[in-house]
Design a protein around this nucleic acid. Structure first.
Length: 512
RNA sequence: GCUCCUGUGGUGUAGUUCGGUCCAUCAUACCGGGUUUUCAUCCCGGCGACCCGGGUUCAAAUCCCGGCAGGAGCACCA
């Protein structure tokens, strides 16, 4: 910096002479929200989120939901939920995933998609489009094996199928769709420049034969489009203006652009995000999770050890925290590693104000309160504690102390002086806690506790890496409702999963 | 190997288009302090970065060239 050597005044003087506008420039501030899209005027913004329904959504997918739906909100545009379910073999669709994804989309984004479509129900359109492109000589049927073609492609050579006449291609095409050719026996390719520097783009495959039945539409179709073709045709039909997706799909954009050029269509504006690794989870793919779930390694897609949207939701994450998180990351193409803590920190701030406080005693130990002079009393009366320290309007919890039986956690038990939160300074000796003073006198450590008249058995599952811990204890049973997220005193957030007929409470740990 | 993308504190992120009040934004983490009858929330303060090397220029995070590093694609998956 010039200013280092000559001082700011000097810089200012030079600027005054050469570039006076720079003097008025504002100091940089952090941009808030998503970067602007380029909008061609008169066009409504149309985006899409296109998952494969081979399982419900993972945390990674939630980025696509958030970014696309937020852009739709920002520009009063539309967002389409499109199921890219044209693979019946490698990543076959899971029937239950369609409705789960649709529901998760709405939960994550806070809005319903403007349109939901399934590629598998629009097969006629794709097959017709393919046939037309074959007729026009834009595509051709290639009967080489994959490895034969790869060898030719790498040396920029045309295969013998490439030069065949259109009539022959149509005949082969009819055989393909008629089921007369086995899987792998033929493929439809888009005719590109073989000199393209990127080998992946040369005469890329558009449709292939699959004789495996599709879980939804059965075995009506023998030829299925690949992602690049299906998506290219569908984006055009739906008038998609902006595609925002992971940068692993950059080559897909290039393939599709080549096709759009041949068809003289306008390719949507495309933006990318980089790869994200969540440090607290290992390498998971939807396929691998599905395998483990079906194998019984996990209790389900919402097992708290899994990086699925279902698991986050079950634990009590707010969808708002997910939205804030992804919006803040924005559209950087950098590959990044993120600790779950950064999502948790957002979540804490959001849910803290609505989370009532309750006392949960892990590993309870019973104590008996005695009066200042060591006497047992029949009735110690009651105390009232706020449900939330900052919001008195949320009401109070009234504890009946009865004859003075309470629980504290074994972890907190120690003989000596201690403050029972919101109640009294006591001296613990054996199984008794002698009241020294109801007033808080000095800086004794404070522990939480519960009156045995106001508590009930509870257990809480906590996921730790790939393990599940089951913690048992007693929870304060004032107005505990299933589905509610609580802040457990001195512990952190947990959600009430259910309450059994006997009143026993089952909790699931959220985070600290 | 080929093709492509990306490099700003511990982790993320703004600023890079169009060089200049940028000795670099904000958050999180961490450290210290305050509020609080929770180890939560909240408030204040601190810490800490332009991948490296050249070049252009009065002036480079920003432009150019060359390295290096990380990642993705090179599927008849999405």
């Amino acid at each position: 910096m010039l200013a280092n050597e000559f001082g700011l005044e000097h810089v200012r003087e030079i600027l005054k002479l050469t570039n006076p506008e720079a003097l008025n420039r504002e100091k940089q501030k952090k941009r808030i929200g998503l970067p602007d899209l380029e909008i061609s005027k008169g066009n409504n913004v149309i985006l899409r989120f296109a998952p494969n329904p081979n399982g419900p959504l993972s945390i990674g997918h939630s980025r696509g939901v958030v970014i696309n739906s937020e852009y739709a909100k920002k520009y009063s545009g539309k967002v389409i939920l499109r199921f890219d379910d044209t693979d019946t073999k490698v990543k076959p669709p899971l029937e239950s995933a369609y409705s789960m994804i649709e529901e998760e989309f709405e939960w994550i984004s806070g809005v319903k998609p403007d349109l939901v479509i399934r590629a598998s129900s629009r097969m006629e359109i794709y097959l017709e489009a393919a046939e037309e492109m074959i007729s026009r000589g834009i595509c051709y049927v290639c009967r080489c094996t994959a490895s034969e073609f790869k060898a030719l492609r790498d040396s920029k050579e045309a295969c013998i199928c490439r030069g065949r006449r259109v009539e022959q291609n149509i005949l082969d095409w009819k055989m393909m769709i008629g089921g007369e050719i086995d899987e792998g026996g033929a493929v439809v390719r888009v005719k590109t420049d073989l000199e393209l520097p990127n080998p992946a783009l040369r005469d890329w495959p558009a449709l292939r034969i699959q004789h495996t039945a599709h879980p939804i539409v059965g075995n009506r179709y023998k030829v299925w489009p690949l992602l690049d073709f299906q998506s290219a045709v569908e984006d055009h039909l739906q008038g998609v203006t902006h595609i925002v997706r992971g940068k692993d799909l950059m080559d897909s954009t290039r393939k599709q652009t080549l096709l759009y050029e041949l068809l003289e269509w306008d390719y949507p504006q495309t933006l990318y995000w980089g790869r994200v690794k969540l440090l607290d989870f290992g390498g998971f793919s939807t396929s691998s999770i599905r395998k483990s779930v079906e194998n019984g390694d996990y209790s389900g897609w919402d097992d708290p050890r899994l990086p699925t949207v279902a698991a986050l939701r079950r634990r009590g994450f707010s969808s708002e925290s997910l939205r804030e998180f992804w919006i803040e990351l924005g559209l950087s193409q950098k590959d990044i590693s993120i600790p779950m803590q950064s999502i948790e920190s957002k979540n804490s701030k959001i849910i803290d104000k609505s989370s009532e406080r309750r006392s949960f005693i892990q590993g309870p130990r019973e104590l008996h309160i005695t009066s200042e002079n060591g006497d047992e009393i029949d009735n110690y009366g009651s105390i009232s504690i706020r449900r939330h320290p900052d919001y008195p309007e949320m009401g109070e919890r009234k504890w009946d102390l009865g004859d003075g039986s309470i629980f504290i956690s074994k972890n907190d038990y120690t003989e000596g002086l201690i403050r029972l939160k919101d109640f009294a300074d006591v001296e613990i000796k054996g199984d008794t806690a002698k009241i020294l003073s109801r007033e808080k006198n000095d800086s004794l450590p404070i522990i939480h506790w519960v009156s045995s008249k106001n508590c009930i058995e509870a257990d809480m599952i906590i996921s730790r890496g790939n393990e599940i811990d089951n913690v048992v204890g007693m929870i304060e049973n004032i107005d505990v409702k299933a589905g509610q997220t609580l802040q457990l005193e001195r512990m952190g957030f947990a959600k009430v999963e259910r309450i059994s007929d006997s009143g026993k409470v089952s909790l699931i740990w959220l985070h600290g």
